[in-house]
Simulated assay, not measured.
Amino acid sequence: MGVPGRVGGVSEPRVRLRLLAVSLLLGVTACSAPVAPGATPPAPSGSSSAVVVPSAGASASAAPSAAASPVVVGAPKAALAVGVRTLKLSRGADRALPTTVWYPAAGKAGGSPRKDAAAAAGRFPIVLFSHGLRGLPAYYQQVTTRLAAAGFVVAAPAYPFTNRDASPFQGADVINQPADGSAVLTALLKLNTTAGDRFAGRLDGGRIAVAGHSAGGFTSAGMLANKRDDRVRAAVVIAGGALGGFRGSRTPVLFVHGDRDAVVKYETGRDAYDATSWPRAFLTVLGGGHSEFLAPGAKGFDPMMKTMTDFLRWTLYADAAAKGRLAKDGTRSGVSRFEAKL
């Protein structure tokens, strides 16, 4: 590829990214929350409990034991219980990244996520989930909790200048979020070797994916772009597109987009899909807008959730049967269309 041009002393790709952020801001209400219009987005169970990343010398008795639960080996064959905790993370003094983590927990499946529950026995893949402009991790818990029940540790940061409560709110800061996402992964993985932490020995740093909606979809794509995070093995871009192109080793990418999205145009996702030669799939929500299909019961939610889950089971658990189900997962007459080059 050629050397990018510059506009007014600023790299051309950066100018495009700033224009992208502005265009997202124009539809900020639509892209912020995948809940029903007028509904109050739920807060995750335990969301007010902050956990500071502990030192390596933490007491081994600090975390509840999960010894009574069976060890999960390979992709879980049934739904797991879900726990939730909040980590106080940051990337530098001015970039706080409070991160909600939903994870497979010990105990009986079902019910609401349990605050600070003991983690299920086993080592689980990680999915970094990124919110849209003026969003919060809680807005996506109907997705993230289902992924956790399917055997993934889902870490969702609230980005410092684009979350709902940001002051000041700076939509163009999305260009800095891929580095934030990498910082969250690094901090989370430290817990895997922190004595006494409930995640000690439970996280698999060799099996990491990124996913996100709207600006979060661009953030996820950005982690596979110029400052590539080589730890990422798969990506799910929901109602988003590329953020600087795709670089580095071939990485499977699933795009999910409504074909009537008025915030991030359907063509934006299609262009990103067509621009990469990597293994890729595209789920079109027929008649879908920007975010409503992320709400349970909405048209497109079920095929989106099944396709995303099996895509992650295939890419992170090497589950060949899950790959074989993808076309069926994403094909619903009048609801969704699936295509792939995997």
Rank of each mutant, 00 (worst) to 15 (best):
A327I: 02
G135L: 05
A81P: 02
L316S: 11
L26G: 12
A58H: 09
P54E: 03
P37T: 10
S336F: 04
R233S: 12
I126W: 06
L19T: 10
A36Y: 07
V127D: 12
L224N: 11
P44R: 08
L312F: 13
G287I: 12
K299R: 08
L342I: 14
A109S: 10
T40K: 11
A234G: 10
V264N: 13
S90N: 09
A43Q: 05
Y273S: 02
H213P: 02
A39N: 00
E267T: 14
T162P: 14
F338V: 00
A281M: 09
S277V: 15
P42K: 03
K323I: 02
K328V: 03
R14F: 11
A39C: 01
L24M: 15
A172E: 09
M223W: 07
L312G: 02
K227D: 14
E292V: 08
A225V: 09
G258Y: 00
P37D: 03
P104N: 09
V52T: 11
T315M: 06
K323W: 02
P64M: 11
T309G: 06
R6Y: 15
A320E: 15
D165T: 13
P13C: 13
D204C: 01
D204W: 07
A66R: 03
R91G: 00
A119E: 09
A209Q: 11
F311P: 05
G38Y: 02
A200R: 15
R270L: 09
I126A: 12
D94N: 00
T86F: 04
K306R: 15
P157E: 13
G171I: 05
G240H: 09
F246K: 14
K88A: 05
F124P: 10
K115H: 08
G334M: 08
T86G: 15
F246T: 01
G205M: 08
P4Y: 05
L20S: 01
A234V: 04
L326R: 00
A225Y: 01
R146D: 01
K115T: 14
A215P: 00
L20A: 07
P4Q: 05
F246Q: 12
V73F: 02
V28N: 03
K190A: 15
G248K: 13
A60L: 05
E339M: 14
A93N: 05
A166K: 01
S214T: 10
A150I: 09
R18D: 15
V3C: 13
A166E: 07
R228D: 13
G110P: 04
V154R: 07
L133E: 06
A211W: 04
R202A: 06
R146Y: 00
D261Y: 05
Y103S: 01
T193P: 01
S48T: 14
A109D: 04
L185A: 08
G241C: 06
K227V: 12
G289C: 10
K306W: 07
P41R: 01
R233M: 14
S336Q: 08
Q177S: 06
Q177G: 00
A234P: 05
V153M: 07
T276C: 01
N176K: 08
R313W: 13
M308Y: 01
S333V: 01
A78Y: 04
L136P: 00
R146G: 12
A156R: 03
L19W: 03
A79S: 14
A322K: 03
G241K: 04
A225S: 15
S69F: 11
Y266R: 15
A234F: 07
P70R: 10
A195C: 08
